[in-house]
Design a protein around this nucleic acid. Structure first.
Lengths: 340, 340
DNA sequence: TGAGCGTTCCAAAGCGCTTTGGCTGACTTG
DNA sequence: CAAGTCAGCCAAAGCGCTTTGGAACGCTCA
């Protein structure tokens, strides 16, 4: 069933039928009712390819996925996707993943914009002065950044959590508990979120005249193994930290293992706080010692990004609105006063 | 730059230019060279929307993503995606994720097929007599199943690993080590992979006249917490198993925690084998006691599925070829002879 | 009463590609 | 040498929608 057939059986022109269905004003209410009714009865669905060719709109949102033999997709991605998908579903939006050579995403962004394959895109894991962001901004396609960049002379729409505030809180808690030697096991510090976390932590320490020593900051991709290695290195130092803040639950698994291997205990010898993006399959309360966390559901963020993307596509949202979500500090058994 | 302009500047018809670029025979080699050359020089890229309208082909592969507030996307998905994306990238294939209401994927499959939004789809986590599979088969869109179903009177193309063989091997190893009371902590047994694993395990035991008791099989979604709970229940039983096979590394984390909480040791009190899909962020050799695993890279599977999908789209692959990959059994420190 | 106006509809021209059905001219073939 | 063949090209008809630029009609109002 296409427009032609439908309009023919209604003895109307394609124009009128099209307008009736798309809510244009120049069609009488009665006619509109007839048309809408017939369309529903015959299960008419406009062909998206044709509509796309005519309008240039695709009804899809895009994401450029960096790939490569040695490139790992962040496991957080799947949770973000859950939220995004959940919203997108209710609006019949599809998501297009365009794989790109990690390191040369530019070509792919240009392609999907030039081809008008998607109506909007989102970026994630931005870095300071992220080239992708500058590009997408220049290309003029609606977009939202999940996270933030830094060092641009233009504003842009984003959704981020208060990473600095979160780790400031975590740091403050640990300091208040009397810890003097703190360490941070961070994610890749070329990404802004990691920079913000470190900044928050430093700020918390500075308030009490403390410093985060050079050797007490690790920046690594967030795997269990890296968490383990970092913790070993820190704890076997001559002046080991008595408290660690950790950027992910997965790394925290490694930290816990290292602590055990060294015959130490949490929170007796080491207080531990980690950031929790809220995975359904790994929960901080189920750690051997329930883990204190800075918590923010990445899934909700996914849903919100989808919502704002949809709003931008339909023109309801404009401008460079930034949105920063507060982060909960959830205190559990893994933190205690500094050892004497 | 569109076809019209390009053909005009070459003083050729659109027909000829189109044919030259698409490799049709009825154009002289010299003309073809001229055309291809000019196209490249002017960066001409055919508009995919137009091409799609004309041909009905989209150059994308689809996946229907079950979503919902209480639906969690499997973390394996992201690894599969890495492989898929890696292959897709090299062939300029995009992936369309169409979110669907979990439980009613049918509507979405019908929509994407009717709209010709994608040239092929893949299904994952199939169940016996999976309705999606029957549907997609009926709708006539090229597809591949990642995993297998059972109980259909038709064949279909799939890629699966030898789950039964893997757990048969694992079971056999444990039996050979003298274990008599074995248990299986499995994934959701409405999915075929779990059924196959259980079958393999039972077969291994049967060979030695052993049985897998009703109470010794758990079927749960694969979270750390469920692994913990299942292990507690098993180990606190009056006749606890001396060996456990576990369907995922994530659950194995929970098993290890339970063992510790109960003051037991691996492999002294309990031998443990788990299936490893090969995550970059959690490796079996880094478990407190290095974990024996049945191993198969889900990432490679993703790449292979993409490859076969591409082959089916271009007509290079046909028919209902099933492909079953063997699984490695990797023995590490977590297994030992049965306690006396 | 006839100019002016708003409402409601329509025919037709795109959107940019592929593909069908020729047409032309050079080249074989009997 | 006429008929047949074939390579190489083209015009035009789609694909199914949106949108432009009217046209027809019934009203109002001077």
């Amino acid at each position: 069933m296409n427009l032609k057939q439908l309009s023919h059986m209604l003895s109307l022109s394609q124009t009128t039928v099209s307008r009736a269905l798309n809510g244009y004003p120049e069609v009488s209410e009665e006619t509109r009712r007839r048309v809408v009714d017939a369309a529903k009865r015959h299960g008419y669905r406009p062909n998206p390819s044709a509509r796309r060719l005519a309008t240039g709109k695709s009804g899809m949102i895009g994401y450029v996925l960096p790939t490569g033999a040695s490139v790992d997709i962040d496991p957080h991605f799947v949770e973000f996707l859950s939220g995004l998908g959940d919203y997108a579903r209710s609006h019949e939006l599809d998501l297009v993943l365009s794989p790109a050579d990690a390191g040369d995403e530019e070509t792919t962004y240009r392609r999907i914009v030039a081809n008008r394959q998607v109506d909007a895109v989102y970026l994630s894991a931005p870095r300071p002065a992220d080239k992708r962001l500058a590009l997408v901004n220049k290309l003029g396609i609606p977009f939202i950044v999940h996270g933030r960049s830094e060092g641009f002379d233009f504003d842009y729409p984003y959704l981020d959590i208060d990473n600095e505030g979160a780790f400031h809180e975590a740091g403050r808690l640990l300091v208040q508990l009397g810890h003097k030697r703190l360490a941070l096991i961070n994610g890749n510090d070329r990404e802004t979120f990691a920079i913000h976390r470190e900044r928050g932590m430093r700020r918390a320490l500075a308030t009490s005249g403390l410093m985060l020593g050079e050797r007490h900051v690790c920046s690594l991709t967030m795997t269990e193994e890296n968490g383990y290695r970092a913790a070993r290195r820190l704890l076997e130092d001559s002046e080991p930290p008595t408290a660690i803040a950790c950027s992910s639950l997965i790394m925290a698994l490694g930290v816990v293992r290292a602590v055990r291997d060294l015959g130490l205990t949490i929170p007796g010898d080491l207080s531990l706080v980690a950031h929790d993006d809220v995975f359904p399959w790994l929960r901080p309360e189920n750690f051997p010692v329930p883990l204190s966390t800075t918590r923010s559901s990445i899934r909700l963020a996914g849903a919100r990004v989808a919502e704002r993307l949809a709003a931008r596509i339909s023109g309801l949202e404009e401008g460079a609105r930034g949105e920063v979500w507060p982060v909960d500090l959830v205190v559990r058994g893994s933190v205690a006063g500094a050892p004497a």
